[in-house]
């Protein structure tokens, strides 16, 4: 046995190895199949889907379904396409991610470097809020948004997503700053740095990875949210997921499958891009968000 072998000591024969590759490939096809179907069929004219084979490549390649999904498809009562809703989602995601991440970083800083009596209990209470089924807060949230004059607005959705994102962002930063050397913080304070100076100059510049993880986590969750979007938005402020669901499940007219598929890809594109560009951090966020504490 060679000594350079460090990762994996299990040995197997050639036939077994072939079998392993075979299984892994078949499973990979299973995972890729829906994406393949969405892409291929979004590039076909509708007749080809209705009469032809869903798994075959288009005979006649066309981007008509894409432009229809983007700018002319009927969503609800208006033939606006998904474009305005894509913008709604962007307007909702950017501030919600920014505010929740900033607050989470400050909370994590206080909870690790400025502990006080009861701070652990506060953290535990915030942590528990990550797990609640959101159905439990829908009715009071709707009521409060109504009282604040924010029902059916993007600002209302930003507020809701910020509030219910705080638990996770605080958790991420707390766990990260827990491992951050306290001596550095103390040294800065010796030199006269105050609370915010220490945060800006010492902690934040060293928080790159956790900021990326948190931003990706929040972005993915908020972009993909359906429940809050469906509950608190009106026709003008719907996010992308709600609009896509309306497009696909509207009962009127012919079902334009190719447009549905193009729309689904448009809704998936931002999070997919984030995943492709930063898969490593994406996985880390998932792990941190699941193996809590």
């Amino acid at each position: 046995m060679s000594s350079s072998q460090s990762q994996q000591a299990v040995k197997m024969g050639f036939a077994t190895r072939l079998l392993v590759y075979g299984i892994l490939l078949i499973v990979a096809i299973f995972y890729l199949l829906p994406l393949y179907i969405m892409i291929v069929n979004s590039l076909k004219p509708l007749v080809e889907i209705q009469q032809g084979n869903m798994l075959s490549l288009p005979h006649e390649w066309t981007v008509a379904a894409w432009s229809s999904a983007w700018s002319t498809a009927q969503i609800g009562v208006e033939p606006t396409g998904l474009k305005p809703y894509f913008l709604n989602s962007l307007l909702m995601v950017v501030p919600a991610v920014f505010i929740a991440t900033m607050l989470g970083a400050l909370n994590g800083y206080v909870l690790t470097k400025w502990r006080f009596r009861g701070s652990e209990i506060i953290f535990a209470m915030m942590l528990l809020s990550c797990f609640i089924p959101f159905q439990i807060v829908i009715i009071p949230s709707a009521r409060l948004l109504g009282l604040a004059g924010l029902s059916g607005t993007i600002a209302g959705l930003v507020a809701i997503h910020t509030v219910y994102g705080l638990g996770f962002t605080t958790l991420f930063f707390r766990n990260f700053y827990e491992a951050f050397p306290t001596e550095l913080v103390r040294a800065a304070q010796m030199d006269g740095a105050r609370f915010f100076q220490t945060f800006w100059r010492i902690l934040l510049p060293n928080s790159g990875p956790i900021i990326v993880v948190t931003v990706i986590w929040q972005f993915t969750n908020i972009w993909n949210d359906f429940l809050f979007g469906a509950s608190f938005s009106d026709a003008d402020s719907q996010p992308m997921t709600v609009a896509l669901n309306n497009l696909v499940n509207s009962s009127t007219g012919v079902k334009e499958y190719n447009v549905h598929f193009a729309g689904a890809i448009l809704a998936a594109l931002p999070t997919l891009l984030v995943y492709i560009l930063s898969g490593r951090y994406f996985v880390r966020g998932l792990m941190a968000g699941s193996v809590k504490g």
Binding site: P34, L35, I37, M38, N41, M54, T220, W223, N224, D225, F226, T241, L244, N245, V248, Y257, H260, F261, G263, A264, I265, A267, A268, T271, L272, V274, Y275, F282
Partner: peptide
């Protein structure tokens, strides 16, 4: 990374 809505559309059809 996908929304359940996107997953739902793909599998529904």
């Amino acid at each position: 990374a996908l929304s359940f809505i996107v997953t739902g559309v793909a599998w529904k059809w």
